[in-house]
Structure formats: C-alpha cells, structure tokens
C-alpha cells in the first residue's frame, strides 16, 4: 500500500482524520456562532449580515461543499471506528464501572455524534433550506422573520436546546481529545487546553441554545 493509505487506514490515522475534520468543524462552529449572535443585535443587523454573505455566494457555496465533505468524512469515519471498536470489545462486564475510570463526555462520543447528525439534518432541512431555497416572507427583514417564525414552535425549540446540550457534551471532549490525537500533550499546557475546551463547549452550547429560548420567550415580537 502507498504510505498515505496505510496511514489513513491505521488506527492512529483514522483518529487523526477524526481530529483533523473535527478541528475544522470546531473552527466553523465559531464562525457560525458569531453569525448567530447577530440575532441579538436586532433584525437589521442580522439581515445585513446575511445579505453581506450573499455577496460571496460562489465562495460560500465552495465552502459549503467542503464543509459537507468534512462532515461526511467525520461522520463516516466516526461510525466506522465505532463499528470496529464494538467488534474489538463485544462483551461487557457484569458490573459497569466505567464512571470510576472515565468521564461521560469521552464515553458518549458516538451517541452524541449520532444525535448531532440527526439534529443537523433537521437544522439543514429547515433553516438552511429555507434561507437558501425556500419562500422568503415578504417583510423588511425576511431572514430574521424566518428565525422568529421557527422558534415559535415549542417542540422545534426544544429540539434545538437538546441538540445544543448534546453538542456541548461532544465538544467538551472533542476539543482536548483532538490535541491528544495530534500528539500535543504537555504537562504545562494540557490542563489549560482541557479548561479552554470546556469553556469553548460551554459558550457555544449555551450561546446557541439561548437563541431558541430567547425567541420562544419573546413570542414572535
């Protein structure tokens, strides 16, 4: 085999791909997060932001395709690892003592990952689809109105809040785990990286989740 395919099919290589794609997704989430925060500056600010993005539409499309590929790679590779790891360890112990030796964030990456994937489909089929291809309401700030509209639905908002809590769990482990997989473990910096990861996960999860709550409580105003 060529050296690169040997690398990517090795256990460490597969983890490397997870960490690399995951890191890119974490960067994307920061950008997404900043965009979402525009909602708190009012309809005008948000729609201006979306309209500005429209100027770079071709570039955005390229990035979207890349993002989609990264997502697919991350998810496919993750599921593959999950399946292989199940095969490596098919029988569980009579007493489950895993909480004594590891944290829930790290143990639940597959399940939180799959949950996030389901959330992603819902998210894309509603917001992304409507923003890009849907019928825009005939108001001054159509994008802001779409957001307001969707979050009137309590079930939809609840799904969002749950989705974001799960995302927080996922990211809390993902952040420091990526460093470990890249081989960056250091007595001085690793404890700090772990803290930063938790802060990152908390800010993103709380920030993202605050939006449906805010709009739901605002009741469409």
């Amino acid at each position: 085999m060529g050296w690169f395919s040997t690398f990517t099919s090795s256990s460490i290589g597969k983890k490397f791909i997870m960490a690399l794609t995951g890191s890119l997704l974490m960067l994307f989430l920061i950008i997404h997060f900043i965009g979402n925060m525009m909602l708190y500056f009012g309809p005008k600010a948000f729609d201006t932001y979306v309209d500005t993005l429209e100027i770079f539409k071709p570039l955005i499309r390229v990035i979207e395709v890349l993002l989609a590929l990264i997502f697919i790679f991350h998810i496919y590779n993750g599921l593959k690892l999950w399946y292989e790891n199940k095969k490596a360890n098919p029988q569980k112990y009579a007493v489950n003592a895993s909480r004594e030796n590891s944290d829930i964030y790290s143990r639940s990456m597959a399940i939180t990952g799959v949950t996030i994937f389901v959330f992603l489909i819902i998210h894309l089929s509603t917001f992304w689809a409507t923003f890009n291809f849907g019928l825009h309401p005939n108001t001054e700030y159509p994008y802001y109105t779409i957001v307001t509209h969707w979050f009137q639905n309590p079930i939809y908002s609840l799904i969002y809040v749950i989705g974001m809590i799960v995302l927080g769990y996922h990211l809390n482990h993902a952040f420091q785990s990526a460093f470990q997989t890249f081989g960056w473990n250091h007595k001085k910096y690793t404890p700090l990286i772990k803290k930063i990861g938790t802060v990152y996960a908390l800010i993103l999860a709380l920030g993202f989740a605050s939006i449906p709550i805010y709009f739901f409580l605002m009741g469409g105003k």
Binding site: S11, K14, K15, L81, E84, A88, S98, N101, S102
Partner: peptide, 20 residues
C-alpha cells in the same frame, strides 16, 4: 502500530480509562 492493528485491538478514543 501495524501489528497492533492486525491483532484486533480497537482504537483510542481518549477516555483515559487505561491510565486510571
């Protein structure tokens, strides 16, 4: 690593249960 992979050990998901 090659022989480790061939012998059906799983991959590391950094739970650190091993260290504990």
């Amino acid at each position: 690593v090659k022989v480790m992979d061939e012998n059906l050990f799983g991959s590391c998901t950094n739970t650190y249960a091993c260290e504990a």
